[in-house]
């Protein structure tokens, strides 16, 4: 177990290194930082002097090492716009995004498993055909369009649900305000969660269906039938457990992707999370904030994938985590 964790940690460090180099390279090529800092009225000599002082004339490697050293100490630079450390700005926005991703994940897991299993068992039924048809629509229509359509229907026409913002939130600890403790908060998070889930849900329904249909063809399912085991037990114990193994792997990657997809959802719903913040930062050429966002999202990717691999090891008895990496 320990050896495995160490191995995973080294992999994670390697990935984070690559992400940081790429992010830093972007920073170097996103316009002139001095223009953002001093404006146009400063003479070229003063600029040159500032450049020297800020270390912008050093080689790329020197600059990167300085950046990495600071980053390791929790300093990813200061946001030009907010005049605050970039990480602080992100951590204030992070809970909103994580709650949104959580809401979407609950919807995806809660619906994709029953729908995927059902459409696999009755592939030719009317309901299955409807689900499969809708899933194509869901995958094809972009998130922002789904979101706008839902706002039009549920907020403008029917006036059931609010169209923007987080509504009443309750602080839990630190910067963390939650939507899940007030009715208003629930109402506000519902539409954005559905919008965010609208791409991944059909994907997972189709994935679970495909894996399930393959598992149902396997020898051990036929054998279970030959033993006289009830169909429900065959579907949900024999087949589903095997079906979920590959789904978990894909799911881990998709949770990271979903954090990235929040940029669209949060923008349409004016959701005060870090996706919305990132888009604003791009508009303002707030380079340190952009870089910090990339690194934080990269970090979330690495962490979720590591956790998912560990869960996979727990679900799949043929992988012995305790002995892995040894």
């Amino acid at each position: 177990m320990f050896a495995y964790l160490v191995k995973r940690a080294f992999q994670a460090i390697a990935v984070m290194f690559v992400i940081s180099v790429v992010s830093f390279a972007i920073q170097d090529n996103l316009g002139d930082p001095l223009r953002e800092l001093v404006g146009q009225s400063v003479s070229e000599e003063v600029r040159e002097q500032l450049r020297e002082e800020l270390g912008l004339n050093d080689s790329f490697i020197t600059q990167y090492l300085r950046f990495a050293w600071k980053a390791l100490h929790g300093d990813l630079g200061t946001s030009y716009f907010f005049k605050e450390p970039a990480l602080t700005v992100i951590f204030k926005k992070l809970p909103a995004t994580l709650e949104l991703v959580f809401g979407a994940t609950v919807i995806i897991i809660g619906l994709s498993v029953p729908l995927g299993v059902y459409t696999a068992i009755k592939p030719n039924g009317l309901f299955s055909r409807i689900v499969m048809g809708l899933s194509i629509v869901g995958i094809s229509v972009p998130v922002f369009l789904t979101a706008i359509a839902m706002i039009y229907l549920f907020s403008v026409e029917l006036q059931w649900l609010p169209s923007f913002g987080r509504g009443d939130v309750v602080p839990i600890f630190g910067h963390w305000d939650t939507n899940f403790l007030t009715v208003d908060g629930w109402q506000h998070i519902l539409l954005p969660s559905i919008a965010l889930a609208s791409i991944m849900l059909p994907l997972f329904v189709r994935l679970i269906r495909a894996e399930m249909m393959e598992t149902l063809q396997s020898e051990y399912v036929k054998y279970a039938t030959a033993k006289g085991v009830r169909p429900m037990r065959i579907y949900f114990v024999h087949a589903l457990k095997n079906t979920l193994l590959p789904v978990i792997t894909v799911g881990g990657v998709q949770i990271g992707t979903m954090v990235a997809y929040t940029i669209l959802t949060e923008t349409v719903f004016q959701w005060p999370g870090m996706g919305f913040m990132f888009l604003e930062a791009v508009n303002r050429v707030d380079t340190p904030l952009i870089v910090a966002y990339l690194i934080v999202v990269g970090f979330i990717f690495v962490v979720t994938n590591t956790i998912v691999d560990l869960i996979y090891g727990l679900v799949n008895p043929t992988i012995n985590i305790a002995r892995m990496g040894a």
């Binding site: 396997s218 051990y220 054998y223 279970a224 024999h238 799949n316």
Partner: peptide, 30 residues
């Protein structure tokens, strides 16, 4: 009838048993 009055032994034991269930679970369920 299946498994009760008439039982079957399959060809390849490597793929007949369910890989994610213990031997005990697969015997007890029968």
């Amino acid at each position: 009838i299946r498994g009760n009055h008439m039982a079957m032994i399959f060809q390849d034991p490597m793929v007949t048993l369910n890989p994610v269930l213990t031997i005990g679970e697969q015997m007890v369920e029968t």
